[in-house]
Design a protein around this nucleic acid. Structure first.
Lengths: 177, 177
DNA sequence: GTCTATAAAATGATAGAC
DNA sequence: GTCTATCATTTTATAGAC
């Protein structure tokens, strides 16, 4: 892996763990095993590096969601597989957490991939759920919100239990509909 | 309002807007119109002031939830009133947002009011929803998660629309159950 | 109680040698 | 490309006068 790649991967990890404001160039360099000069040679600065990291994380999120959403099975089976797939629940959503970072949301370039990724996810879930409902947009928003909110509850409780309960609850409601 | 009160209120605002890591003592002092010496006279430091601010915000959140949850009406009417009450949707949840702040979650004293508040909310919603379901715990977790996740989607989109859609979706599912 | 002065450390970079 | 200075600013306080 090249130095530039190691810098991006270190930034992805630190943005996930500590957010943008909580992540210093120095911490990125140390985790990547690179010096200051090296980082500023490959990237213009912290925002530039963050953009590379966020873009890669966003692509990753879409690809892994699509794996389950385009699989064979009924709409409910595919949504259930997506919601119940293995996750680092206590780490939260690497994209959703960035919505709480005011410096990220204030920068249109950093903000765009976050906005687009969550909009894509809503729209993609709506396509799948159209199989069981002619106007599934609101329910698709609910499903994405349960996921994002489930992470929040799990982090607050330091336990996956509230996350699992929230997912179980929405799947129960979907099944009874 | 006393200087100590102004410091606490300024901290509450800044924690909501910028989180713990993104809020400096200097910013708190400026917003409160107080000098450094004044702040350190009333509070031991940033964590001590944050604890006072978070405690007050947590109490406020509970009181305003309880207003709707203990009102007259059916369970669905009370939950609907709570979910649809007026909110600063684009600012997000002042308690839930702190779950993304690693320095807050690493400090047991700061973390406790967040954990307790969201656990209380789940439990309180479960009590209300027991009217329509003998085992409402999972659905209560879903409702709280939709709220927290709705804030995330709204901030990502810079629009209240996804929040409103997510709430509408879960209320539709609850009504059809 | 509030103010100003001081300060060690971290932050986010730039400069220039190699 | 990578490294080691160097640097202005911010952060998070402490000290002591008033």
């Amino acid at each position: 892996m090249s130095t530039a790649d190691r810098l991006i991967e270190s930034t992805r990890e630190l943005l996930w763990e500590r957010g943008y404001t909580g992540t210093s160039p120095k911490a990125i360099q140390q985790r990547a095993g690179a010096g200051q000069g090296s980082m500023y040679h490959h990237f213009a600065g912290k925002p530039d590096l963050a953009l590379a990291a966020i873009t890669r994380t966003a692509e990753d999120l879409r690809a892994r969601a699509e794996e389950h959403l385009c699989a064979p099975g009924t709409a409910i089976e595919r949504v259930t597989a997506y919601l119940r797939r293995e996750r680092d629940v206590l780490k939260g959503c690497p994209i959703g957490r960035l919505t709480q970072d005011p410096d990220v949301m204030a920068d249109p370039r950093l903000r765009a991939p976050i906005e687009e990724t969550l909009a894509w996810l809503r729209q993609r879930l709506a396509e799948v759920l159209r199989e069981i409902d002619p106007a599934p947009e609101a329910i698709a928003a609910t499903v994405v919100a349960v996921l994002q909110g489930g992470y929040v509850l799990a982090r607050a409780a330091d336990s996956v239990e509230p996350f699992t309960a929230a997912i179980d609850g929405v799947l129960t409601l979907l099944a009874a509909r």
